[in-house]
Design a protein around this nucleic acid. Sequence first.
DNA 1: ATGGCATTGCAACAATGA
Length: 251
Amino acid sequence: MRIISYNVNGIRSAMNKGFCDWLSTNPADVICLQEIKANEADIDVSAIQATGYQSYFFPAQKKGYSGVGILTRLQPSEVICGNGFEQSDFEGRVMRAMINGIQIICAYFPSGSSGDDRQAYKMQWLDEFHSYVASFKNQDLVICGDYNICHKPIDIHDPVSNKNSSGFLPEERAWMDKFFELGFTDTYRHLNDAPHQYSWWSYRAGARARNKGWRIDYISVSTTLAHVVQDAAIYPDIIHSDHCPIYVSLK
DNA sequence: ATGGCATTGCAACAATGA
């Protein structure tokens, strides 16, 4: 099974930049989307379906904000919106689909960049998400998403000047350690130790052209699944968003 | 330390993002 995670920064904006042409190339069997920033009624779903994907969306209650979605060429046996935490579900941050016997979770972790209150909420959300994934005892999980955290210095272009930046704070990086220790594997790092590999770049100051980025998007799998990870990739040349798609293929 | 850029809602800028 081939899986992609992609923060599209507004699915309508991405569709205006050729997102469906890219879908038509059949880039994966399942595509987890974050930051759709739209209600389903405002999305041209027929244009997506014409590329061969079924679509499921979980928008935020707040119009034009956050929201996640799953596009799939395979029939899910179950699709669940939300993870049971009130604020997270109000903001449309987590959904999951059971596909070919694997629980695929799509998550848009909060940003803490807009102020102390949002950073505090991010830390609360991380605690909640940890208990959510821990509740799937003995099940194989694939956790796709925009984690909004760089795990290690290799995952950010300038670890020194960003040492106090939300997304690279010690407590956030410690959460990533704890998350992986719970029994998950970072599929990209499992296969690749190359530096300068990023999935998000600021729109400002030509950051993307200069590859001044952050690796904040991940596809994690239950460590019991690590042996079936065939390939993992980042696609920085696919440009419909300030993030790029990331990819994994499972045997 | 600051600002820089983009999407969206809603019709002028405000909110948000990392």
